[in-house]
Design a protein around this nucleic acid. Structure first.
Length: 746
DNA sequence: CTCCAGACTTAGAAGGAATGGG
DNA sequence: CCCATTCCTTCTAAGTCTGGAG
């Protein structure tokens, strides 16, 4: 199975595309808008070709699926209208402070009384689901499943409860022994419906970056060849630069210019008057010092490392968790971002600017009124403490580069993130039900006499067919010049009435999110092609392709087509449906586990390609590929040897006809088999790795693929879920792992 | 409408930890 | 056991989208 690259035939067609982004990124910067040089490497052609319109072919499939039951349910639950009433009970015991709930919740409208204390729910630690739930909230199937689980859960509840009680009460002061809520199944409970995100929130606040430690006096800075002792502030900023010295971007003009400007602001006036040229600054001693430190850290003894680890663990235990609505939840990023030099991605106009140190006075704390508020460091103050339960963040501050707000929020395994994630996939599944209608509609709209409608329809076609991002407009000069669908410019596409034997080919070439290059050649329908010609008429290369369109117009339109529909739902939908379809196509129950996993990875890869998720080829890629090949060759030789030995053993056995030689034959046979297996494994590995060179699977796995598809596939194929999801991923997708059965259909 | 702040999701890189093969 | 390679986690930038003000 080694040389089998045939997977590309199975790809959904989204054009012919591959990338060489990394190389490109750098070259690109000066060309920005002039794509004079379109190097198309064969590699990308290799990866995808095929020319059928994917919509066309997949439409059929969708339709078929449409007919299938949606029994599995948990369908459109989430819409936001008509909520009001649900969510009655919530039991606030456990913590005493909770008892009174929000005496006067700042932004909470008054709630029915029994909301806060409903005696009947006292036995449960969970928020309860409603009975007057409108029908389809939880389709029957789930309900039954749930009942099953309920039962066995009931058994645990008692034990769990006592444990919990202890755990949570102790929480404030002493450490909790075990996680009290090992497996809280929030997905079996009622959700908040009215924009309230929580009723109780308590945490310890952020962990600040460690204070600056001045350099030892033997580590010197030289200006114009002469030693110069810097003031602590100026020195700190200098160390930021020194730490990046090996990095290419310290050679970039904008970076240096921005850095120098900000550095000067930190200097004393004396320093400022002396240091006037960055080129005359010599940071090498600093740089060497940090390298030595890194080295020292690496070669520390086991005990020292363990100590550090323990200290980290302690911090995690103390600051890494919060209590939200009776449950201890993991915080994603409880450490404040340390100061340093800003490095945006791609060609960022602000690269090199000083990212300033965040102080307690910059921090806004969000928690519930009746919680124990986090305490600022001694002698310091928070900027503000608020109690807004309509948002999910615990801490926020304003960052100085773009002036945007940064947040501390919960981990993906938390209820609050998980529910949202689940909801996202449910919205995508609703799109599945009406995608045909929407497609027909936009095709109709290609003919509209109104320009804005045609533009909208063509843009939507791209978003659907090519999984492009919406493309909000950005402030010029504030960020790297990147685009999405609605912000495409004339210079980003080229039209070929005919190309490589195909008609009406559109070539896309632009930098998308994170300055990742999107390069693709797609045959489109004639109408689309004609429209594009029209849109481009009398425009300059840097004019907007869709001048009558922006994301808010588009999303408003989508909203009318389906409740909750926005541009990004198409990405989620197309990604998930592609995975499901590819898994069906590529996997075969008969195969062994490594082969199945290769197939899974290929299906995953098809999605990553669709979504243009790229990575820099690992630095050691070529070498490690070679190593692997050497191993394979060695294994082949070994196999040949083993076969030879088997042969001679057989011959031997034929002559001698005794037990012993027969046994020997068996042994040799086994050996051959084993080696064959090993060889195959290696070859699979090689194939997988080669195909994966520049493709990042993680992003789609984490953000676009309905995890229930993967869970169902694992069950069907007898693959342990651990082969597909690592621990973190299993935590994030616990809801899916728990609820999806083998017959789950996206 | 437009503009903008705010909140939240999605993204690849870097660096550290784990793994596995000799 | 050691080293190289792979895997995983952390970090934080860069998007999307909503809603409110004007």
């Amino acid at each position: 199975m080694s040389g089998d690259h045939s997977f590309s035939d199975d790809q959904v067609d989204c054009g012919s595309r591959f990338n060489d982004t990394q190389k490109y990124k750098d070259k690109y910067k000066d060309k920005e808008h002039k794509h004079k040089d379109h190097k198309k490497d064969k590699e990308r052609e290799k990866l995808k070709h095929g020319n059928s319109d994917h919509k066309e072919s997949s439409d059929k499939k969708h339709r078929d699926k449409e007919k299938m039951k949606h029994k599995d349910g948990s369908t459109d639950k989430y819409k936001d209208k008509h909520k009001e009433k649900k969510m009655k009970s919530f039991d606030g015991k456990i913590k005493k402070e909770k008892e009174n709930g929000f005496a006067s919740p700042p932004h909470v409208k008054s709630e029915p009384d029994d909301f806060y204390h409903s005696p009947k729910h006292e036995k449960s630690l969970k928020r309860e689901r409603d009975d007057d739930d409108d029908s389809e909230f939880k389709p029957k199937k789930i309900k039954t499943e749930k009942d099953k689980k309920r039962k066995h859960e009931e058994e645990n509840v008692k034990a769990k409860k006592t444990k919990n009680k202890k755990g949570e009460v102790a929480d404030g002061k002493k450490k909790v022994k075990k996680e009290p809520e090992e497996k809280w199944k929030w997905w079996e409970e009622e959700r908040y419906t009215d924009g309230v995100k929580w009723k109780f929130l308590e945490h310890k606040g952020p962990v600040f970056a460690p204070p600056y430690e001045p350099l030892p006096s033997n580590v010197k800075f030289y200006y114009d060849g002469k030693h110069m002792k810097l003031s602590p502030q100026a020195e700190e900023v200098a160390t930021f630069f020194a730490k990046m010295l090996d990095h290419e971007y310290t050679t970039k003009d904008i970076f240096r210019k921005n850095f120098f400007k900000d550095w000067k602001k930190e200097m004393t006036s004396e320093e400022r008057s002396k240091i006037t040229d960055l080129k005359k600054c010599n940071f090498t001693e600093m740089s060497d010092y940090f390298k030595a430190q890194a080295e020292a850290r690496k070669s520390k003894t086991k005990e020292d490392k363990l100590k550090i680890k323990e200290e980290n663990e302690r911090m995690l235990q103390e600051y890494g968790f919060c209590v939200m609505d009776n449950h201890k939840e993991r915080i994603a990023n409880f450490r404040i971002e340390p100061p340093g030099l800003f490095r945006g991605r791609g060609d960022h106009p602000k690269m090199g600017m000083l990212k300033r140190r965040i102080r307690p006075e910059d921090i806004i704390i969000n928690c519930s009124k009746d919680s124990k508020h986090p305490v600022p460091p001694p002698g310091r103050k928070w900027k503000e403490v608020r109690h807004d339960n309509k948002v999910t963040w615990l801490v926020s501050w304003t960052e100085n580069i773009q002036g945007s707000i940064k947040y501390i929020m919960l981990n993906p395994s938390s209820r609050i993130k998980g529910e949202k994630d689940w909801q996202k996939y449910e919205t995508a599944r609703r799109l599945k039900k009406c995608v045909d209608r929407i497609r027909n509609q936009y095709r109709e709209d290609w003919k509209s006499k109104e320009m804005r409608i045609r533009q909208r329809a063509v843009a939507l076609y791209f978003i659907d067919k090519l999984a492009l991002r919406a493309g909000n407009e950005k402030e010029e000069g504030e960020t790297a010049d990147t685009v999405g669908c609605c912000s495409l410019r004339v210079e980003h596409i080229k039209l070929y009435p005919e190309n490589d034997g195909q008609e009406f080919v559109v070539e896309f070439d632009f930098l998308g999110k994170d300055s990742i290059r999107y390069y693709n050649k797609v045959p489109v329908e004639k109408r689309v092609f004609k429209n594009l010609q029209l849109f481009m008429e009398n425009k300059e290369p840097d004019d907007d392709l869709f001048d009558r369109l922006n994301t808010s117009i588009l999303n408003k339109h989508l909203q009318e087509l389906m409740d909750g529909l926005t541009a990004k739902v198409f990405r989620t939908y197309n990604a998930s449906i592609t995975l499901q379809q590819q898994l069906k196509e590529l996997t075969n129950v008969e195969e062994n586990i490594p082969a199945k996993i290769l197939s899974y990875n290929r299906a995953n890869r098809a999605v990553a390609i669709l979504c243009n998720h790229q990575r820099a080829p690992p630095k050691t890629f070529e070498k490690s590929m070679q190593n692997l090949q050497t191993k394979i060759d060695a294994k082949r030789d070994q196999l040949a040897d083993a076969k030879r030995e088997l042969k001679s053993a057989k011959a031997d056995a034929k002559v001698r006809r005794d037990e012993k030689s027969k046994k020997a034959v068996e042994t040799k046979k086994k050996a051959v088999q084993r080696i064959e297996e090993q060889l195959m494994k290696l070859e699979v590995q090689a194939t997988d790795r080669e195909e994966n060179k520049q493709i990042a699977l993680g992003t789609s796995k984490l953000n676009y693929l309905d995890p229930r598809i993967s869970v169902a596939w694992c069950k069907k194929m007898g693959i342990p879920i651990e082969k597909i999801y690592n621990k973190t991923q299993r935590e994030k997708f616990a809801w899916a792992i728990d609820m999806a059965e083998e017959d789950y259909e996206f």
